[in-house]
Nucleic acid binder design. Structure first.
Lengths: 200, 200
DNA sequence: GTATCATGCAAGCGCTTGCTTGCGCGTGAC
DNA sequence: GTCACGCGCAAGCAAGCGCTTGCATGATAC
């Protein structure tokens, strides 16, 4: 593709993630792309259009990466299937964390971008929900555990471990990944069916 | 106190919560306070000082409200003690949600305000941690459950239920409070000691 | 009554913002 | 050889920004 457009899109996404819509000035974006500000306006009609295109591209990439992640339709082993998936999502999430925080803050101001901003998170949530409902039907989850609540809890853990570490590093001794793993342990241990129920 | 200063402080906090530092212009703040912009600069040397004072006041109020919440030093009954506390914190958190989202996004840009921005959250986290460690020592928590992980999980649930509902209302059927309650059920059920362990 | 104080209002300054215009330069197609 | 095209550069414009100045007005203190 056009190398200039490419560089502008990635620069726009980076600056937007770090500074928000207002802070992402066309001069900053052009400078980061190593391009004259005028060139920016030769390729995109306005700052809104540029950032929209940049977010759309980021959204597409994220969705592609996430839907490549393995999470079977027919659950067989929660530990073996869920853990690698969650690990991968957390990594993607932490990588996009700066942008997610910006998206959360500017949500009300950028209705035009809603589909791009939280689409990947929604997709992950829905996929987890479907998987856990199937797991519950297959008897892999203790009957008392509501699959929706389990989904929420997993997403909450992803959410907090993807966003909070830069702000409260002292709260994650051993690193966010280790802390996340311990939370997942806790959740999975808590929803495992009792031994006698498995054999029924 | 001075009614004008008071109105300026609340207006500054509101506008900052909604629009962030850059978006909280002195003209907007003065207008919301029903005051001339010049009056603003007669009371505060700069916009930074005004917003700093507003955040400090909000911080003080939040801390006072939270430390008034009951959470005993000697845990006796997790369900009876933790649930009302968490309910209250969630309410406070959801009320401040707009501001928390802004704080998360602008964290790197506002180092001068760090103490005010996430202080209350830190306080809640530390209090929960101490309580859960004591509970574990008292045998109220299943030995395999790491108190730190439980704390993280509870905070994560607070976090996501305090921030996400405005953005994904469809994901919280029955309201955020009900969904939160189900998550807390799940966590508490998962960390309860086994019956035979209680009697040992 | 007069002095003091907080406030409103009109105007403006220097700066940044999104965006435009005009021109000149190099490269590849034919 | 030239011609179109993508780009850089210098300049600028209207609007909004934080912040200042000067002056008029009304309430309060003594």
């Amino acid at each position: 593709m056009d190398a200039t457009v490419e560089r502008l899109l990635t620069a726009a996404r980076e600056v937007f993630d770090e500074e928000g819509f207002r802070g992402a000035t066309t001069r900053k974006i052009a400078a980061r792309a190593g391009v004259n500000e005028v060139t920016l306006f030769r390729h995109f009609a306005s700052k809104e259009e540029l950032i929209g295109a940049a977010l759309a591209r980021g959204h597409a990439e994220a969705v592609a990466r996430l839907s490549a992640a393995p999470l079977p339709e027919e659950p067989a082993d929660l530990d073996a299937e869920l853990r690698p998936y969650l690990r991968m999502v957390l990594q993607a999430f932490a990588g996009a964390g700066r942008g997610v925080r910006t998206a959360l803050a500017e949500w009300e101001h950028l209705p035009a971008y809603h589909a791009w901003l939280l689409g990947p998170s929604e997709a992950v949530m829905e996929r987890l929900r479907i998987y856990l409902c199937a797991a519950a039907r297959a008897g892999l989850v203790r009957p008392g555990a509501d699959p929706d609540a389990v989904t929420h809890l997993l997403v909450a853990a992803l959410f907090s471990h993807g966003l909070l570490p830069p702000m409260m590093p002292g709260r994650f001794p051993g690193g966010p990944a280790a802390s996340f793993e311990r939370c997942v342990d806790l959740i999975l241990d808590g929803i495992r069916p009792e031994p006698e129920e498995v054999s029924r």
